[in-house]
């Protein structure tokens, strides 16, 4: 498979040359996906915490729904957001279709259930462990949630990373709602799809390797931060 060798060379060439188009695409990918993960975290983490700690009617059904939404194909989310943001759709007046804003919305919808489900699982396990202790220490429900969020912070960061991985890797949603417009909504994955459809496989795979490298750097950075804040002596 000579393509693999070619694509490694292509990837190296792209990185070394600091190709301005590539930098633009990488920065847009990061801007869209990081913003989406931040928004999804604001929705997903409190939702996950509520599902883990609070008892209310319909909770079981909601947990089921969130877990099911986690498996949504990106293209379905993309189609839904497209229909909402389309000029003739309910939110057409905002003129968001084919903008990074639309891509952020689609990825937020895609990622929020993942963050919520993973947060819920993490926090539910910790809540079972902490519940009696915190009650005896006099914690209110709010304080219980705050304590759990803080003590689970590194596990929650892992949930955010899982969400970021999905956001950076998906192509179906951003292609539909972003349109893969050059210099406007072209991100790593849509660029890869375009190069593939041009039959430029080494370039496509080269971009894929740049994406992999980017994900590796982000993960390493988070692990590094975690080691720094958590200290080496933590069980």
């Amino acid at each position: 498979m000579p393509e693999i060798g070619d694509s490694i060379l292509t990837a190296l060439g792209l990185i070394v040359s600091g190709d301005p188009d590539l930098i633009e695409i990488v920065l847009l990918s990061l801007r869209v996906s990081l913003t989406a993960v931040a928004l999804a975290a604001m929705i997903g983490v409190p939702l996950g915490a509520a599902l883990a700690v609070l008892r209310f009617p319909g909770r079981g059904a909601l947990v089921l729904l969130v877990n099911a939404l986690m498996g949504l194909p990106p293209v379905v989310v993309g189609l839904f957001v497209y229909l909402c943001l389309s000029a003739t759709g309910p939110f057409g007046v905002f003129g968001l279709l084919y903008t990074p804003g639309a891509m952020i919305i689609a990825q937020t919808i895609l990622v929020a259930p993942i963050i919520a489900a993973l947060s819920r699982a993490t926090l539910a396990e910790m809540a079972a462990e902490y519940d009696d202790t915190l009650r005896m220490l006099g914690a209110s429900p709010t304080e219980t949630i705050a304590t759990l969020l803080w003590d689970a912070r590194f596990a929650l960061v892992t949930a955010l990373l899982a969400g970021l991985g999905r956001a950076l890797a998906e192509v179906g949603a951003v292609m539909l709602v972003g349109g893969n417009i050059d210099h406007v909504t072209r991100v790593m994955t849509t660029a890869i799809a375009l190069e593939t459809s041009r039959g430029a496989l080494p370039m496509a795979l080269g971009l894929g390797m740049v994406l992999l490298l980017l994900t590796l750097i982000l993960n390493a950075a988070v692990i590094g931060l975690r080691a720094r804040f958590e200290g080496p002596a933590h069980a």
Partner: peptide, 18 residues
Amino acid sequence: VLLRRSLRGNLTHALRLA
């Protein structure tokens, strides 16, 4: 069940909750 914090952090948090 000790909180995933330092010893001091456990006590400070308990004092806060109290």
